Amino acid sequence: MLLFSVLVAAVAPGLALLTYFYLKDRYDYEPLHMILRVFLMGILIVLPVMIIQRGMMLWLGDNPYLESILISGGVEEFVKWFVIYHIIYNHTEFDEPYDGILYSVAVSLGFATVENVLYAIAGNASVSAMFLRALLPVSGHAMFAVIMGYYMGKAKFIDDEKKKRWYLTLSLVLPFFWHALYDVIMNTMVNHWLWFIAPLMAGLWYGAVGKITRANNRSPFRFVKREEEVKL
């Protein structure tokens, strides 16, 4: 019974956050089957990511900074970015800037949910530990995804090729930077990590809310919906 409760606590944060971001789509809800497919992609990339990370650890050795910056933040964000760019970026359902955020979050939360379940099984974690992980790593994955998806959305709907490449670069580099910083704090600070991670997460959430609003405000469906409301 305890194991079941822990597993539920491991899965619930990812689904709750995915629901939150899905409902934040103000003008054109994405098909649920697409969201679930992308969430499943996030689940499926866990194994190849783990294999790559294991190989890099054997190659680079046991260094907490390299592990935080390259092995964890670098590999995970690159693989998620690769999936979004090559599978979702040119998809017909990616038809407004907010979709970049939503699909990036779906991939990241699929990944984070499996990561959470594996932690719960391997570490004999408690429900309280799962609550803390919901506030930190699971939420962190979502925040990095918001940044990735926001800039992918900007790149998708701009005609200037130079700016398009710049935004695509930011969609990879910025999530990598924040993920690496998060992992450096968690992996190298033993006693005072909370004093650094709490303001970091607060800042990421504050930035995410602004990005959600700005992405929705650039939706091509915004004026269509207003016209429909006026007619009613």
Rank of each mutant, 00 (worst) to 15 (best):
F4Y: 08
S5W: 12
L7I: 11
V8N: 07
A9K: 05
A9Y: 06
G14P: 06
G14Y: 00
L15S: 10
L17Q: 06
F21W: 05
L23V: 09
Y29W: 03
L32Y: 01
L36W: 09
F39T: 04
M41R: 08
M41Y: 10
P48W: 07
M56R: 04
M56A: 15
L58N: 09
G61Y: 02
P64D: 03
Y65E: 03
L66P: 02
S68N: 07
E77W: 09
E77L: 14
F94Y: 06
D95M: 13
D95I: 11
D99M: 13
L102K: 08
V105S: 09
S108Q: 05
S108K: 01
S108P: 06
T113H: 07
T113L: 13
L118A: 08
I121C: 14
I121E: 08
V127Q: 06
M130D: 01
L132Q: 13
R133L: 15
A134C: 02
L135N: 10
L136S: 04
V138G: 03
H141G: 09
G149A: 06
M152G: 06
K154Q: 02
I158Y: 02
K162E: 10
K162N: 13
Y167C: 09
T169M: 14
L170N: 13
L170Q: 03
L172E: 02
L172R: 03
P175M: 08
D183Y: 04
I185G: 01
H192A: 14
H192G: 12
W193H: 07
L194A: 12
P199N: 03
P199C: 12
A202I: 15
G210N: 07
I212T: 03
R214Y: 05
N217C: 13
N217Q: 08
R222L: 11
K225Y: 06
K231F: 14
